[in-house]
Structure formats: C-alpha cells, structure tokens
Design a protein around this nucleic acid. Structure first.
Lengths: 135, 135
DNA sequence: CCGCATCCTTACCGATACTG
DNA sequence: CAGTATCGGTAAGGATGCGG
C-alpha cells in the first residue's frame, strides 16, 4: 500500500496528503448519511431533516452548505409559493458516495461483532479492577 | 438501496442503525489512518506516532485503546528492558480496513476537484455578497 | 518506551428566536 | 418551507508532567 503521494518526509500520512484532506471532509456525524440519502435521488430540506433522525436544522443546513461548496451536492431553488429547495448529489459527489457503499455493507454485517467485543472488554475491565485503578 | 435494517419508523437512518454505529466508530480524525497503517503489518506505538503526522500521544493512545476495545486492533506487550508494545490489525479490523481502500483511492483521484470547487465557491462569495442563489 | 492524569483552550453542536 | 443568528453547555483534544 503506498498511502500518500505527497509524502515528503517519510511519513505515510503527511498532514496535507489527499487522504487526510478527504478524511477531514467526510469524518463528521452527518456527511456520509446525507450523501447516502441523496444517492437515491434529489430531496428537499425538510425531507432530509425527517429522514435523518436526530439531526438538527442547524447541522443539516451547515453540512449541506459545505457539501455544496465542495461540489459534492447541488442546490436548486424553485420560486413556488412557499419556496422549495431541492438538493441533489453531483456526479463528483456520486463517485464519493459509491466508495462509501462497502462501508454501509460492512456495518450491517460486522457491527454486531464490534459491539460484542466492546461488551466483553468492558466486562473484563470491571472483573479485574485491581489492574489499573481502585486498589 | 435499503439503508437500514433496524428502521422502525420510516426513517432511512434511525439513530441505532448499524450504519450510524459504524459511522460513529470511524468518523474521527485518526481511526482510518491507524487502520490503514496497521493493514501493512504490526507496528509499535512510537512508530505509529512518527508515521501519523500531527497526532498527539494522547489521541494515539486513546484511539488505539478504543480500537482494541472494539476488537479491530490487538495489543501485544513484550517484557523487554524498556517495554515494547506492538499493535496489529485483527481479522475483523482487516475487513473494515478493506472497505476503506476505495476511499483513499477516491481521495487521491478526486480531492483536487473538491478543492477547486471550494475555491470557486469562496471566490463567488466575495464577488457577489448580495447574491443568495441562482434560481 | 509506553501511556495515564491534569489543566485548559477550543470547536462542536443543540436550543431558541427571527427573516424571507 | 427554508433557512440565518446568537447563546451557552459540553466534549474533543493539545500541552505538560509523572509513573511503570
């Protein structure tokens, strides 16, 4: 694996490397979810809001704006009586969304193992308290 | 796309859905980078620290611990004079790391377009401050 | 060498209120 | 309906120092 093309000083992941930049872009609570939804077709603001449980209006607005800024999502306004705004994924955004499909598949097939491991770890922690603290 | 198996109320992404849980797991600054490095073979603590530019000792320690807790990374201690600790990716972690390869590829091939779009957006912003949208 | 504990500053993000 | 603006609590995370 070659990691990072802009590697200047021997580090696999320099701070300005494309992987780091892409990660900084998508590594938040909502970006991937929004991209995943828009992959299925254009949606309106409050439609997205309803679909994504727990997102605030502020974060949805903010995330959509940054996605539009980065050319991953497009925004179209319709001058209807109460104004209508439709968000759609761009071709560029679609290429990104595609790379994230395996992640969703992994989640559905492996997340149970993760949760199980986590529970086991926590159980051992409380069984052997003398190891780290208390005592 | 069917999105979420645990969808109870019509939402595509319920808060307890596997995709959300997996996202919460990897959506941080460092997890994906560490997984990517360990995919190439076991590494010691300070070795990882050197490879990942900008990570603090605290975050590396913290992230490794949570990865171990979730069964994605294993930790092995060698009782050498100054103690040696080796981290390795687990089979489960490897399945996750594999799903993230397309993301790194995407980053290297498309991040330039994103940055370009971002620059164009910011340029238009300052050119036409009174403008809201394009109808 | 590995990693935990503490302090402290920042930024995230939800709640609320208000505009077009 | 589709946002923006502001406030404030909280948690992420860097810096430093200590311990095994």
């Amino acid at each position: 694996m070659h990691h990072c093309a802009t590697d200047q000083d021997g580090n696999a992941y320099a701070s300005g490397c494309p992987t780091r930049q892409a990660l900084d872009r998508i590594a938040d609570k909502w970006t991937v979810l929004i991209l995943g939804l828009l992959e299925g077709g254009p949606m309106r603001f409050n439609q997205l809001r309803r679909e994504i449980e727990g997102i605030s209006q502020k974060m949805l607005s903010q995330t959509l704006k940054s996605l539009e800024r980065d050319g991953l999502v497009s925004r179209k306004v319709f001058a209807t009586v109460p104004v209508t705004v439709e968000y759609a994924i761009t071709p560029l955004g679609a290429t990104l969304a595609e790379t994230l499909v395996p992640l969703r598949v992994w989640a559905e097939t492996h997340i149970a193992q993760v949760l199980e491991s986590r529970a086991a770890y926590d159980r051992d922690e409380s069984d052997a308290p003398a190891r780290l603290d208390v005592a």
